[in-house]
Amino acid sequence: MATTAHNAKRLHRFDATKRLVARLQREEAVIGGIGHSNFDLWAAGHRPQNFYMLGSMGLAVPIALGVALAQPQRRVFALEGDGSLLMQLGCLATVATLRPANLAILVMDNGTYQITGGQATPAAGGADYVAIARGCGIAGAAWAADEADLERLIDNALATDGPHLIGLKLDDQGPAAQTERDPPQIRDRFMRGLGTKTSKLPG
């Protein structure tokens, strides 16, 4: 039986993020959404192909889509929180229409706005992000049943054509660290990591 929103194990976000990062061997780009989604990406160990958002809530998937369209040979992951995705649900329809084969979306669903005090999102009535994604046309969208299943789904996203969407049910554990907030530096390093900027300045 397929994993549903109700029987998916609640994972720790930092542990799940580390499992993703450990499987990235080919300079895959990762866009960390606003707040704790990118804090834990940062805490998992900076990679030159990481981009950490600061504001622009809801744009992790669109930014990742832009990167995926520009560099079709590179795999691109968006790490987006559930509250953030709710701000820009229409982007799932866009992704389904464009069908970028190299794009994977991880929805980090703890059901709350954790960074502002843990208030419940308006999806508390039972909105199911994987079902929404499938309804938009991302046919392979799936909830991760547990840690091993998450790793299987990430491997699948790395090895097969997407777009992919993986839903992660999370517990309420806080972030492991806080990202350094220096946007031009983040952009500069990300562009060097993607090979779109070269500089004699040490980076």
Partner: peptide, 15 residues
Amino acid sequence: EEAVGIVAGGAMAGM
């Protein structure tokens, strides 16, 4: 907003 995110991502990735 979505389009701004897409163009920002594209610009950083060379498109």
